[in-house]
Amino acid sequence: MVRISAFADEISKDPVEQLDVLESHGIRHIEFRSIHGINVLDLSDAQHEEFRALLRSRGFGLSAIGSPIGKIKITDPFDSHLQRFDLAMDLAEFYDAPRIRIFSFYMPPGENPAIHRDETMTRMTELARRAAARGITLLLENEKGIFGDTAPRVLDILETVNAPSLSHAFDPANYVEVGQPIDEAWVSLRSRVTHFHVKDYDSKTHKNVPAGEGEGQIPRLIADAVANSYDGFCVLEPHLVIAELSFGFTGPERFGDAARALKGALDGNGIAYA
């Protein structure tokens, strides 16, 4: 079963407007990255209490904590980052959403990522170990500039760590942006994909576009995933107006374009969704 979710901070900083727009498109889940322009890991306890109450009153849930864990340099200290990770796990439990989106650390520009493979694997193994102890699933997203930017390196992480608590959040646009052939990525990683980020990319214009308008082959990949018993979220992360390292923005109107494109792709393939 496909369930649609979204990075609602791409709509607005205001959590009420986020929910209003999502509700207008029949979407009832959020990948929680920020509200009020503040990252999920930096909000106060009171803000979290208020947001959880708002979600419950409006009938919304979270698909995952859209954390920035792993978005530091591989040469940065890890101990303090583990404290941030512990907070992310606390929040996953607080919101009853035992899934956390993570990354695999930025590589020094110009250096061969192989130099930092061992340290990357050590860190990823520790994250997976801690998550397993608390019944939390980590969703490893591929992204430009980090160790896991290409499919072979994402697969290397997943096979080396080899833990049920670590799986893949497949981001087609991020693969296209680094020149990773989508077919190769999908074939090698399909069995490990438990989360799908709906973001497409046009390499000619170097811009993110609605699903199906770029080279990410999103309609075909989702159809193939469902044909192979995919049961998870398709998370709208359109980046149609702004696409930066730690933030993307689409706005209420363009978000509508993104939502309609995804639903059109699902409807066109006869895929049921909620």
Score class of each variant (00 low, 15 high):
residue 3 R to E: 07
residue 5 S to W: 08
residue 5 S to V: 09
residue 6 A to W: 02
residue 6 A to P: 02
residue 6 A to Y: 05
residue 7 F to Y: 11
residue 7 F to R: 00
residue 9 D to G: 04
residue 10 E to L: 08
residue 11 I to N: 04
residue 17 E to Y: 00
residue 20 D to I: 06
residue 26 G to P: 09
residue 28 R to T: 10
residue 31 E to P: 08
residue 35 I to G: 04
residue 36 H to F: 15
residue 38 I to V: 15
residue 38 I to M: 10
residue 39 N to P: 00
residue 40 V to I: 15
residue 42 D to H: 10
residue 43 L to C: 01
residue 45 D to W: 06
residue 46 A to D: 15
residue 48 H to W: 01
residue 49 E to I: 09
residue 56 R to K: 12
residue 57 S to A: 14
residue 57 S to G: 06
residue 59 G to A: 12
residue 61 G to I: 00
residue 62 L to G: 06
residue 64 A to L: 02
residue 65 I to N: 06
residue 68 P to W: 04
residue 69 I to S: 06
residue 73 K to Q: 13
residue 74 I to T: 03
residue 74 I to S: 01
residue 74 I to D: 01
residue 84 R to W: 06
residue 84 R to S: 13
residue 85 F to S: 03
residue 85 F to E: 03
residue 86 D to A: 15
residue 87 L to S: 01
residue 88 A to I: 12
residue 88 A to S: 14
residue 88 A to P: 12
residue 97 A to V: 08
residue 100 I to A: 07
residue 101 R to M: 14
residue 101 R to L: 14
residue 103 F to E: 01
residue 104 S to T: 11
residue 106 Y to S: 06
residue 107 M to I: 15
residue 107 M to Y: 09
residue 111 E to C: 03
residue 112 N to A: 12
residue 115 I to Q: 11
residue 118 D to M: 01
residue 122 T to Y: 11
residue 127 L to V: 05
residue 134 R to H: 10
residue 135 G to N: 02
residue 136 I to Y: 02
residue 141 E to Y: 08
residue 141 E to T: 06
residue 142 N to G: 11
residue 144 K to S: 07
residue 148 G to I: 10
residue 148 G to E: 05
residue 149 D to I: 04
residue 151 A to G: 05
residue 152 P to K: 10
residue 153 R to V: 08
residue 154 V to S: 12
residue 156 D to M: 09
residue 159 E to M: 10
residue 160 T to L: 04
residue 167 S to Y: 05
residue 169 A to M: 12
residue 170 F to S: 02
residue 171 D to T: 01
residue 173 A to S: 10
residue 173 A to Q: 07
residue 174 N to P: 12
residue 175 Y to V: 00
residue 177 E to R: 15
residue 177 E to M: 15
residue 178 V to I: 13
residue 178 V to G: 05
residue 181 P to E: 13
residue 182 I to R: 10
residue 186 W to E: 08
residue 190 R to N: 00
residue 190 R to A: 14
residue 193 V to R: 07
residue 197 H to C: 03
residue 199 K to L: 09
residue 200 D to Q: 09
residue 201 Y to K: 12
residue 205 T to C: 01
residue 206 H to E: 14
residue 206 H to P: 00
residue 207 K to C: 11
residue 208 N to W: 04
residue 209 V to I: 10
residue 216 G to Q: 02
residue 217 Q to F: 01
residue 218 I to R: 03
residue 221 L to F: 08
residue 222 I to W: 02
residue 225 A to G: 12
residue 226 V to E: 05
residue 226 V to S: 05
residue 227 A to Y: 01
residue 228 N to A: 11
residue 234 C to D: 00
residue 234 C to F: 01
residue 236 L to I: 15
residue 237 E to D: 10
residue 237 E to V: 04
residue 238 P to C: 10
residue 239 H to T: 05
residue 240 L to Y: 10
residue 240 L to G: 12
residue 241 V to I: 13
residue 245 L to M: 07
residue 246 S to I: 12
residue 247 F to T: 06
residue 249 F to P: 00
residue 261 A to L: 03
residue 266 L to F: 04
residue 266 L to M: 02
residue 268 G to M: 07
residue 268 G to S: 13
residue 268 G to E: 07
residue 270 G to V: 08
residue 271 I to W: 07
residue 272 A to N: 05
residue 273 Y to Q: 05
residue 273 Y to K: 09
